[in-house]
Design a protein around this nucleic acid. Structure first.
Lengths: 216, 216
DNA sequence: GCCAATAAATGAACATGTTCAATTACGCAA
DNA sequence: TTGCGTAATTGAACATGTTCATTTATTGGC
C-alpha cells in the first residue's frame, strides 16, 4: 500500500487525516450522549474518552479543556439552528414576529435539553480561550448581524422608525433574548411557548417604548 | 469559667458562636484577598484555608463549595453597593438618569476588579444550590424591586407612560443592565464611563421605542 | 468541678480535570 | 521496501475540589 491507496471515504486524503476525522466524530458523539444523559458536571472526561474509544489524553488534543468539549458538541448544532432560524424568518411580517420566528428554533431545541442549555449558558460566559471559542463566537455574531439586517429592512419600509445605529439595536435585542432565556430556564422547566411569549412581550415593549406620547 | 464568662466582644454569646464568627471572618478575608490577587480560578481552596488559618475541611462547613466561597465574599459587598446605589438615586430626575445613578456604584466597583467580576458573572448563572445563594438572589430581587418602584413613580408623575406591568419593565431593565455589563467586560477593560454610557444608550432607546410615531 | 452529649474542626483519602515525557503510527524520500 | 522525521496517541503523574470518619472543643446538667 502506498500513500495514495485509499480504501473508503474521500479520495486523496491521507490515513492521518481520516483517523483524526473519525476520532473527532467519535469524541463528539460520546460527549454529546453523555452530556445529555448525565449533564455537563455529571460527566467525567474519563467516561467520554472510554466511550469514544480513545485514551484520556487524546481528548485534549481535540479540545482545550472540558469546557471546550461542550462547544465541540454544540457548535455543529448551533450552525444547524442558525440555518433553520434564518430560514424561518417571514418576510414583510411585523418586526416582532420576525424576531420571534428567528429565535423559535432555539427555544424549541433548548426546551428539549434544559439542563444542557443551563450548563451552556454558564460556560459561554466570557468563553474566549478554547479552540472552539472562535467558531462559537462567530456564530453569535452572525445572528446579531442578521438581526441588524432585519432592523435595517424594517426601518427602510417603515415598520420601524429609529435614528439609532441598527447594530446597537441588534445587540440590544440579542441581550434581551439572553436575559429572557435565562429567566425562562431559571425556574422549573416551562414549555417553549412560555419562553417565546416572554420574548415577544419584551420586544413589544421595546418597540412601543416607555415615553409619554409626543416625547419622541 | 462558666458558660456566662465572656472576655470580649458581645456579651452573653457563647464561645462556640464567637469562634465561628471569627473563623468566618478570617475565611472571608483570606478568600477576598486571594481572589483579588490571583483570580477565582487561580486560587486554590488549600491556599484559602492556609491563609485563613483553618483546616481544608473547615472551609466546607462555612461554604457549600468553592463557588459558594465567591458569594460568601461578594454578598457583603453586594449589600454595601446596593445601599449606596439606593442612596444615590436622584429624585424627580429623568428616568434614565435615575437608573444610571442606581447602577453607577456597581460599575465603579466592578471597574476596579474586572477579573473578579467576570468570574462572578459566570458563576452566578443558575446559582441556586449554595448556602450563600438565597442571600445573593434576594439581593438581586431587591434591586429589581427598587427599579419597579422607580418605574411606578415615573409613570405616576408622567415622566413615563406605559400600560405594561412595572415588574416586567423592571426585569427588562435589569436584563439590559446585565447584557451591557457583559459587553463592557467582554473586551479589554474599559473605564466605567464607557460602561455607563452604553447603559444609558440602551435605556434611551427603550424609552423612545422603535415604533413609527403614532403607532403607540 | 466533672461528665456525657453535641457541635465543630481536622486532614487523609478520594474523584476528576489536565499535563507531558514516552510511545506509536504515518508520510515521504531514497 | 526501508528508514527517518514528524504528527498523533497514550496513560501515568500531578493538581485541586470535595467528602467523611475521627478527633477536639464546647455546652449544660449534676
Amino acid at each position: 500500500m502506498t500513500e495514495t491507496d485509499v480504501r473508503d471515504g474521500d479520495a486523496a486524503v491521507g490515513q492521518r487525516e481520516r483517523n483524526k476525522a473519525e476520532k473527532l466524530q467519535r469524541i463528539q458523539e460520546a460527549a454529546l450522549a453523555l452530556f445529555r444523559e448525565k449533564g455537563y458536571d455529571g460527566t467525567t472526561t474519563r467516561e467520554i474518552a472510554r466511550r469514544a474509544g480513545v485514551a484520556l489524553g487524546t481528548l485534549f488534543t481535540y479540545a482545550s479543556d472540558k469546557r471546550d468539549l461542550l462547544f465541540l458538541v454544540f457548535n455543529d448544532r448551533q450552525d444547524e439552528l442558525r440555518r433553520e432560524a434564518f430560514r424561518s424568518i417571514p418576510e414583510d411580517a411585523p418586526f416582532a414576529d420576525q424576531i420571534v420566528a428567528l429565535f423559535e428554533p432555539f427555544y424549541a431545541h433548548f426546551a428539549n435539553e434544559p439542563g444542557f442549555t443551563r450548563d451552556l449558558l454558564r460556560e459561554l460566559t466570557f468563553y474566549t480561550d478554547g479552540v472552539q471559542a472562535p467558531r462559537f463566537q462567530e456564530g453569535r455574531l452572525s445572528i446579531v448581524a442578521r438581526i441588524r439586517e432585519l432592523v435595517e429592512d424594517a426601518t427602510a419600509d417603515g415598520r420601524l422608525s429609529t435614528p439609532e445605529d441598527p447594530r446597537v439595536i441588534a445587540e440590544m435585542i440579542f441581550g434581551l433574548y439572553q436575559a429572557e432565556l435565562r429567566r425562562w430556564l431559571g425556574g422549573d422547566t416551562a414549555p417553549k411557548e412560555r419562553g417565546l411569549a416572554g420574548l415577544r412581550r419584551v420586544l413589544e415593549i421595546l418597540i412601543s417604548g416607555l415615553a409619554p406620547s409626543g416625547t419622541n
